[in-house]
Simulated scan of single mutants.
Amino acid sequence: MFLAGGIEYRYEAFEAIAGDPKSYEVGPLAAQGFGIGSNGFPGLAARFQGKNSRNSAALYIDSEYFFSEDFMVGQLFGTRTLVILVTQPKASCLRAIN
């Protein structure tokens, strides 16, 4: 059985700047079903611009158990719980594909 764990803390800060008004305003082709903005994604409107920041903290514990050489079960506890089933082929089973 293998156990691992860790903690993480991050402080992130960013500034969002408004795009060109033509990138988020509804144009004349919207009535025909066309989306607004480039590729259907509008630019950032002026009302959403500004400086922002956030703090993020995490704690996790990971465990893995080998039932055999070829079969392992792993579980990660943290913000959410994941159960991971993994098989590992032996090197002798691998063949080159030409």
Rank of each mutant, 00 (worst) to 15 (best):
K51N: 08
G6T: 01
G35P: 12
E15W: 03
Y11I: 04
G50F: 04
I97S: 05
E8N: 13
S38R: 05
D20Q: 14
D20E: 12
F2V: 15
N52T: 07
D62Y: 14
L82H: 12
A30D: 10
I84A: 10
E25C: 05
R95T: 12
S53Y: 10
P42Q: 05
D70S: 15
P21S: 10
G74P: 02
F34E: 03
S23K: 12
D20I: 14
Y11W: 13
Y24W: 14
G74A: 15
P89M: 07
E15I: 09
N52R: 10
N55M: 04
N52G: 00
Y24C: 09
E25M: 11
P21V: 12
T79W: 13
E15C: 02
A13G: 14
R80I: 07
F66G: 15
P42T: 04
Y9P: 00
S92N: 13
S23G: 05
Q49A: 10
T79Q: 14
V26F: 06
V83G: 01
E8L: 08
G27I: 00
F71R: 08
L94Y: 09
E8G: 11
F77H: 05
S38V: 09
F66N: 15
L85Y: 06
A57K: 11
D62T: 08
F34Q: 04
S63E: 09
F34A: 09
G33W: 06
Y24Q: 07
L44E: 00
F67Q: 02
